[in-house]
């Protein structure tokens, strides 16, 4: 664990890998240090944003150093079912690239549960990982300027669902009708760090 400076009000904790991020994030959300207003997990880091009126970076650093990471997903994490029509524009080409048939790719995507590792890019966009999934998907050489909302996509070790129309460079494999982000719903974000997801195939 490395503690890196991130300005006068935040601390960036760099960790060995995503599993270590998830374990530290789980422990920090179980018992949030006093004066920390945001805990932001990412691929290799956890950012702690503090309220300087309440705490100091030194105090927060001391708490982080003595926090015992808790591996695994948060207790009682819900499982969200996402029905997907696997007709994405990149499905066939990506399957070929991965030396799979489109059907095999879909089976790999639906066979095991995914977990939201962290969010970013847009409100409600979750970076999902599939333990044991072993995905290594290249991004598109040229990002699309418009990815339709609900698009289910792959990039690197991650899968994701585009909450709304946006630019994007991930490989599109399908589409879901479930709104993963809606400001008038409580909670607005369906995919929060720790949430488990099961993709199911919808045909016809």
């Amino acid at each position: 664990m490395r503690l890196l400076p991130s300005g006068s009000a935040a601390l960036l904790v760099e960790l060995a890998d995503l599993d270590a991020v998830l374990a530290l994030y789980a422990a920090l959300t179980d018992r949030p240090p006093a004066g920390v207003v945001d805990v932001v997990p990412a691929a290799r880091t956890v950012l702690l944003v503090t309220d300087p009126a309440v705490t100091t970076l030194a105090a927060v650093a001391a708490v982080v150093r003595t926090t015992v990471p808790r591996p695994g997903t948060p207790a009682g994490a819900e499982v969200v079912q996402l029905p997907v029509r696997y007709d994405g524009a990149d499905l066939a080409e990506l399957a070929g690239l991965l030396r799979l048939t489109p059907g095999e790719l879909v089976r790999r995507h639906t066979a095991r549960e995914w977990t939201v590792a962290f969010c970013g890019f847009a409100p409600g966009f979750g970076y999902l990982t599939q333990p044991g999934g072993d995905w290594d998907v290249p991004r598109r050489a040229t990002p699309r300027t418009r990815v339709p909302p609900g698009s289910v996509a792959l990039a690197g070790e991650f899968s994701g669902v585009y909450p709304r129309q946006s630019p994007g460079g991930w490989q599109l494999i399908g589409r879901t009708d479930v709104a993963v982000f809606a400001v008038d719903r409580e909670p607005a974000a369906l995919l929060r760090p720790g949430t488990r997801i099961r993709f199911t195939e919808v045909t016809g």
Binding site: D38, C119, G124, R192
Partner: peptide, 11 residues
Amino acid sequence: RPGQAALGVGR
């Protein structure tokens, strides 16, 4: 909107 950055919602 402090406190929602983990959901991808900035301040």
